[in-house]
Amino acid sequence: MTILQLPVPETTAERFQTLSAQQQTLVSQLVADCLSEPSSLTDVMDYVSFKATQRGLTPDILQQLLDEE
């Protein structure tokens, strides 16, 4: 496996660091899956939505996560 560095806002990096090891792995896998083959932004968004739903993310849970600061 290769380490990839991506520029992100500091708040995003801080939030990533607070995730559990399992959550960090899931985020890494999601990024890898999204970048594994060329696709449009719409395709990536659809894929992320599909995977999130598959893993139990509901609109209510998403809203709770977005409301957290």
Rank of each mutant, 00 (worst) to 15 (best):
L30G: 02
S36D: 14
Q17R: 15
F50P: 04
R55W: 09
T58V: 05
P7D: 08
L62P: 02
T25C: 08
L65S: 04
Q17T: 08
L65D: 03
Q64D: 12
M45R: 11
T58I: 03
V27G: 01
R55T: 05
L66W: 02
M1Q: 09
P7V: 03
D33A: 15
D33H: 14
A21P: 01
L26R: 10
Q5P: 06
I61V: 09
A13K: 08
L62F: 13
T12Y: 08
S39L: 07
C34K: 01
D67C: 10
L30T: 04
V44W: 02
A13N: 00
L65K: 05
M45V: 14
L41F: 10
P38E: 00
L65A: 08
A32Y: 03
Q63H: 15
V31K: 03
E68Y: 11
E37M: 07
L57V: 07
K51D: 06
K51A: 13
I61R: 12
T25K: 15
V8A: 07
Q24C: 00
V31L: 13
S40R: 04
Y47A: 08
A21H: 06
T11E: 13
D33T: 13
S39F: 00
S28D: 10
L4T: 14
Q22N: 12
A32T: 06
E10V: 06
A32M: 06
Q64F: 09
C34V: 14
L30C: 05
Q23D: 06
Q64K: 14
Q22E: 11
L41I: 12
I3R: 15
T53Q: 12
L65T: 07
G56E: 05
R55L: 12
L4M: 13
G56H: 05
Q23Y: 01
V48W: 05
A52Q: 02
F50T: 11
E10C: 03
Q64E: 14
L6A: 07
V44M: 09
S28W: 05
V8P: 02
E10H: 11
L35P: 00
A13R: 03
T53K: 12
S28T: 13
L57C: 04
L66E: 11
L41H: 10
E10L: 14
L62E: 11
V48T: 03
V48P: 01
D60R: 10
T42I: 09
L30V: 04
L57D: 00
S36E: 15
Q22M: 07
A21M: 01
V27Y: 04
V8S: 01
Q54S: 11
E10F: 05
P7T: 05
V27N: 00
E68P: 02
A32N: 12
S39N: 12
A13L: 01
F16Y: 14
Q63V: 09
A32F: 12
S49K: 13
V27L: 07
Q54L: 15
F50R: 15
T18V: 02
P59R: 01
Q54E: 12
D60V: 10
E10S: 08
P9L: 08
P9Q: 10
L6K: 11
S20G: 07
Q22T: 11
E37T: 12
